[in-house]
Design a protein around this nucleic acid. Structure first.
Lengths: 316, 316
DNA sequence: CCCCCAATTTTGTCCTGGACAAAACCCTCT
DNA sequence: AGAGGGTTTTGTCCAGGACAAAATTGGGGG
């Protein structure tokens, strides 16, 4: 059992895996193929990375997530990397149209870790425009803006976590204080095991709950077999899954197909999020929710189909 | 790039790592040494584990976390394991005196995925006994009970997720609606990257916030260097870390030591949770919070030391 | 011109089997 | 009973080879 922390401030390979999210195997194969990083070794021949290595690896990882190829990045000099970052900055700022969202104000608050400022913004938006608008017109665009700021290096990991945490707290809090007469459908919300982002799920839950649906969220990272049993025991009408953009389409297709086959036809499957590709809609019994704002429509449609004459539909 | 999901329902080694939390290296060395698990192989010679394997590995992991030795467990027959579980049951039921916690009622509600029942219970407890008692006298014991029930096979993964999700929602909701005049200290809450359980963190946040401290939670899984920068930019007085029982002491020691070294002496470090071993208290400038109920005392102590004559202390 | 399909390169993950240090355990001696 | 020292257990690391999936490139054909 080797230890991680080491008086000299050097990091072992597992510490680097932890800090960067890059698997050990990948770190070793990069070293073998591209000569970077090239860590020192301790007496036992084990790798010792510098903090410098870690910083650069994080940057490289960010750029890979944004479509750059590892080979390029690992062969790149420091100057090359700076040029690439500059290119990214230009590309993203020209694309993002912030429709009425106080982008700079929010980014500043996040950088300051300013809890009250964020909560005020959410609270104000909630009171002025309502819960659904808060989610679809403020939180959803903010997510995009923040993702982009992160790529440009203007926000770090903790800032992103901080933001996510604040949004989740606020939405959950609002949800908790908000009860309506329960109406069909019963909806089970979760993500597949590789998907650990729970914010999208919560946003959907808010949209659904504010229409009176009975939501039961299992949180993220649920194994397929467990989703199945859970849907059956909770007598769910709909299973809602959320996919982030980073989720590989192939895995999503495979997972949703398997789930579809293992659930009765009476249970619908809804998929949403940036990673919910159109092709998922090709599977019978699976609906793709294109944008968060269209959740209420999808719900109304479901109700109209199942309870054509009921007042349930009129509820909304 | 091998894929995880596989039509036949078999799992690759990385899928098993994900499902059980056991590193690939460990899975391979167990196979080599103890002959379990002994997965089939695909055409390429890669391991394919069964769902059965995963279930047993999960159980074994739980028992290791409870102090059993891997060698025993991996050599054990199915009957041996049952006997060990039985021993655990006896030990746990005799130790855990459920002081007024409606254990059976809660377990039944969880099995039914009964959202209203759980919320009612929390709401009732909140109104009758207050927020801090809700956390320390209901949620904390329930966590133990549910962990034990899981070991005995009476609850599955989705049930545990469901419970966690409901508790988190309720606590966050209550917290969101609860504002007090902000007082020192400023506290940064998070967990180290290997620790993904955020419930303990939230419980601490509730205890602290209800004493008027300024909490800033980053959620779980924060890299060490980011904790450092974040603590500095948010001018935190205290960094609070949570460790579950499964967290290896060695890693906790190493992580906390590194963090301690990288933060100024004016910033205290508090560690709590079932994995917060006494030995962590040996590091100067690190306090171990033994039980969730002692959080308010620790806070009062901090205030008394920093603001001996201030009314801040009297606030509580 | 664009779209689709096949060949090629890139890239991440898996494999084996050996090694070793830290942790846990066990035994003895005070 | 507690401290100290030896032994066993256990998790993590290494090298370097292999290979399949993804991404890219290079044609044709509509």
């Amino acid at each position: 059992m080797k230890h991680d922390a080491n008086g000299s401030g050097r990091l072992t390979i597992s510490a680097v895996e932890r800090e960067t999210g890059l698997p050990k195997d990948t770190l070793r194969v990069w070293e073998r193929r591209y000569g970077f990083p090239q860590p020192a070794r301790d007496e036992a021949g084990e790798r010792l990375y510098t903090q410098e290595d870690v910083n650069r690896l994080r940057l490289i990882r960010r750029l890979i997530d944004h479509g750059w190829r590892p080979g390029k990045l690992l062969a790149a000099s420091e100057a090359d990397l700076q040029r690439i970052i500059e290119a990214e900055r230009v590309a993203s700022t020209s694309v993002a149209p912030d429709g009425g969202v106080p982008t700079d104000e929010v980014l500043a608050a996040i950088r300051r870790h300013d809890v009250p400022a964020l909560r005020d913004l959410f609270q104000r938006t909630l009171l002025e425009r309502g819960l659904q608008a808060l989610v679809s017109d403020l939180v959803a665009p903010l997510n995009v803006v923040i993702g982009e700021a992160w790529i440009r290096g203007e926000l770090g990991v903790p800032e992103e976590h901080f933001y996510t945490e604040q949004v989740q707290s606020f939405l959950r809090g609002t949800l908790a204080g908000y009860t309506r007469p329960a109406a069909p459908p019963r909806i089970l919300l979760t993500t597949l095991p590789e998907e650990e982002h729970g914010l999208g799920l919560l946003m959907v839950e808010v949209m659904l709950a504010s229409e009176g649906a009975q939501c039961c969220s299992l949180g993220p990272r649920m194994p397929l077999t467990d989703i199945r049993t859970s849907a059956l025991t909770s007598a769910a009408d709909i299973v809602a899954l959320s996919f982030s953009a980073a989720y590989p389409l192939r895995l999503a297709l495979a997972g949703v197909r398997t789930l579809r086959d293992s659930l009765p036809d009476t249970v619908d499957i809804w998929v949403g999020g940036a990673g919910a590709h159109e092709r998922l809609a090709g599977i019978p019994g699976v609906s793709v929710i294109g944008a968060i704002r269209s959740v209420p429509d999808a719900l109304a449609e479901w109700r109209a189909a199942r309870f054509p004459d009921s007042s349930i539909v009129a509820l909304n």
